[in-house]
């Protein structure tokens, strides 16, 4: 696991409160689980039909009928429950999820998020991502700040097809924590390793610097 991803996941874990119902997407969001303090109780929802998702199954203890949304063999807490896909998305759309954490290809100053297709290149489909972004009370985007080529993924405006319009509340990268507001992105925290100018330089979207800028 790269340090970049760990840093993002660790910071996001601090947003989770005792008793929250949380859905974690594929990739960096999955790692968030590892940093949730043991003294709080969190109900992890998995779109394929369970609440109370626990760790991946240990080798030799896989059960073909318990998987997570990535298709990996998983386990369930003894207080968890299983249900069908209609119920699973009732939970998602119906406002019963406190938070969802999703990865993205791009995210922008208006809280738009794009993570389900690159026209002409990659069309995996949206799966449950459109429902999660619309339904969850708080949407956190976990994203590496730039592409491998050094282009900012945090845009003034997304140019890839959207997963949802205006639904993202918080963007967490390895360099910054940015809140989506009606006036654009507010830079709330910067990583200890960088200064503000570097973050601004590496971000396509315009950033308003919080008066109370912190480090993480």
């Amino acid at each position: 696991m790269s340090q970049t991803k760990t840093k993002i996941a660790q910071r996001i874990s601090k947003e989770i409160n005792d008793g929250d119902v949380v859905n974690l997407g594929i990739g960096i969001p999955t790692i968030v689980c590892d940093f949730i303090p043991s003294d709080i109780e969190v109900h992890i929802h998995s779109e394929n039909g369970l609440v109370g998702l626990d760790k991946e199954a240990a080798e030799g203890f896989e059960d073909k009928d318990i998987i997570n949304a990535s298709g990996k063999y998983a386990t369930i807490k003894n207080t968890g429950s299983f249900f069908d896909s209609a119920m699973s998305f009732n939970i998602i759309r119906g406002g019963h999820l406190d938070m969802t954490v999703l990865g993205a290809l791009q995210v922008d100053s208006k809280g738009n998020i794009a993570n389900w297709m690159i026209p002409g290149k990659l069309v995996p489909g949206m799966g449950g991502a459109m429902d999660l972004t619309v339904g969850a009370k708080k949407v956190i985007c976990a994203i590496t700040h730039q592409t491998k080529k050094g282009t900012s993924k945090i845009k003034q405006e997304c140019n890839l097809p959207l997963t949802a319009a205006g639904e993202v509340d918080l963007i967490v990268s390895e360099l910054a924590v940015m809140e989506v507001s009606s006036e654009g992105l507010i830079l709330k925290e910067i990583a200890k390793e960088v200064d503000v100018n570097e973050v601004i330089e590496k971000t396509e979207a315009e950033l308003k610097i919080s008066e109370n800028l912190k480090q993480f």
């Binding site: 998995s46 394929n48 039909g49 369970l50 059960d63 073909k64 009928d65 318990i66 998987i67 369930i76 299983f82 249900f83 069908d84 896909s85 209609a86 699973s88």
Partner: peptide, 21 residues
């Protein structure tokens, strides 16, 4: 997972998903 001969069904764990719908 289990059926009786009349066709009543029980699903197991997360294998329910789209089946009952």
């Amino acid at each position: 997972w289990k059926a009786d001969k009349s066709g009543n069904l029980i699903y197991r764990h997360s294998a329910k998903n789209f089946n009952p719908i």
